[in-house]
Nucleic acid binder design. Structure first.
Lengths: 115, 115
DNA sequence: TCCGTTGTACGACGAGCATCGTACAATAGC
DNA sequence: GCTATTGTACGATGCTCGTCGTACAACGGA
């Protein structure tokens, strides 16, 4: 339980578990989120994704991704900025994120190429 | 729904879904099974694994892996021979299986090196 | 100051999952 | 033919997950 940014709890790099990462990415909605994040390389607010779910569900998915160590969340005013923990993931599981993004289906595959 | 071997239903190579594969591998027990299979490259009976679950649960896990397209099952007498669908997986999601096995924790990591 | 925006918290609900025990089917070996 | 082995089938159980609605908190702009 190491606080990386402020009061939002993130797992430390060494605490990231493979099972949790795979489970986090096994949901299509969350895979879409990660693919979007990978496309842009920067920080995105939760609302900037056009997801087929409500706000509540959205919050839930971002929480799962964060607690699995896949993304990082940083509070800025009323919005929350999300970014991929690409370096931490690559350090812990080399190549994993890249191959999953390349393997991601249809529209997501296009996103992976940009990254 | 294409029958690859006999009467046991396997998904065709093109029908393998990333979400299903990731979900299948997100369970520690199933990841152990896959790592064991990857270690030996051959065919193994269900009973040859020393898993911390009962027979019933074992059957369930093998079924999940098979329906996700990760493994192949072939009936031979009373036993069922399991093998990894390494080529199909590599064709559909290049590099995915390899990176996940390399990322697999502790004892599993040793198994991945052998492969 | 008031309102709109952004996102969380909490409770609820239905579905799926991991696990088990028991019963059963099929084959191999004696 | 009888029995041991191997694995499935089925039902049950408790847990987790994905989804939603409503209510609420925090900040920014007019």
């Amino acid at each position: 339980m190491s606080v990386t940014t402020e009061s939002i709890s993130h797992p430390a790099c060494s605490e990231i578990e493979l099972s949790a990462v795979l489970h986090a990415l096994s949901d299509p909605v969350r895979l879409m989120i990660v693919a979007e994040l990978a496309k842009g390389e920067g920080e995105y607010t939760c609302g900037s994704f056009s997801l087929p779910v409500t706000k509540s569900t959205c919050t839930h998915h971002f929480k799962v991704l964060r607690e699995a160590g896949v993304i990082q969340q940083r509070q800025q005013g009323t919005t929350r900025l999300n970014s991929l923990r690409r370096e931490d993931l690559d350090a812990r599981f080399p190549g994993l994120l890249g191959t999953i993004l390349k393997a991601a289906p249809n529209s997501v595959a296009v996103a992976a190429e940009t990254a």
